[in-house]
Simulated assay, not measured.
Amino acid sequence: MNNYIECNLNNIKKNIYELSIKYKRNFSDITIVAVSKYQEYEKINTAYSYGQIDFGENYIQEWQEKVNFFQDNLPNLNWHIIGNLQKNKAKYLTDKVYCLQSLDSVELAKEIEKKGKFEKKLKVLIQLQVDKNDQNKSGISIEQAQILRDYICKSSKISFAGFMGIGPLNAETSKRKDLYYSFIQNAKTLWNETDSNNLQPILSLGMSSDYEEALECGSNMLRIGTAIFGARNKL
């Protein structure tokens, strides 16, 4: 298993490096989030031992179990919540969350403001709609994102760090690239309308099957699971 995950990580990093040159991107600006949903603890520990520090979880209960297991052994691990978060689960968010990537409503933001337990502001990404015709993916419209962005910027508990998107599963490459370019441009427009102090937004777009298109279009954070760990097994 160790050799398998090490080889996968090395191959992905090598590929991203080559794609960065191809698309005139800065390799050091690209972050890989290893999607560890349903993955065995041993696999997460192995990936961490080979330098992977950012991990993405979809479900609060599973994330809590992993935090409790790893918190003493892997202190520098960054947990990203990347799955849809129900409002009644906001009370479980703590400083152990490095970034909530799936903030998609003002109502959820208000619930986090009310019930989140943080000593410092929680870094959040707005989950922006990629394809309005894709009924299988959540995400907020560009119009509603403006309202959510303005709420976050006034919040005392959450900090606006960028945007996340989930692309359509079965789109042709040309259509997906058009959608991704549009997503990136909309995200940058929304970001530039804020007092960002010249910081660059996180643009979390692209997974195991489509990260080349995402990189070409401007993503700087890739959520990669299967290509690192292999197929998932429910815990």
Rank of each mutant, 00 (worst) to 15 (best):
E213C: 10
T194S: 14
E216G: 05
D134Q: 13
E119H: 15
K188S: 05
K115P: 05
V67W: 07
K234A: 02
I126L: 08
G51D: 02
Q200G: 05
N68F: 12
N233Y: 09
K188H: 10
C7L: 08
P168C: 15
E62Y: 00
K91Y: 05
T189R: 15
I30H: 12
K66P: 01
P201H: 02
N192P: 09
L169V: 03
T31Q: 15
F163T: 05
G167H: 03
T46V: 14
F183N: 07
F55W: 12
Q86R: 02
Q129S: 15
K137Y: 03
A171F: 00
K132N: 14
L235D: 11
F27Y: 12
K37G: 06
W191H: 03
L203H: 05
Y41E: 13
Y23D: 06
C217D: 07
S49I: 07
D104C: 14
N186P: 00
C7A: 08
I140F: 00
K132G: 12
F69G: 10
W63Y: 12
K37F: 05
H80M: 02
L122K: 13
N78S: 11
K66L: 04
P75Y: 03
K123A: 09
I112N: 01
N220W: 00
E111H: 02
V67L: 08
A47Y: 07
A90T: 11
F183Y: 10
K110R: 08
S219K: 08
G167C: 12
I228C: 05
P201F: 01
R149T: 11
I112V: 08
I166H: 07
Y98G: 03
N198M: 04
S156A: 15
Q64E: 13
T173A: 13
E57Q: 15
K177N: 10
K117N: 04
L77M: 09
S138E: 12
E212P: 10
N26M: 07
A231Y: 00
H80S: 06
S36N: 10
Q86F: 00
K188R: 14
N136F: 07
N10W: 04
K157A: 07
K120E: 03
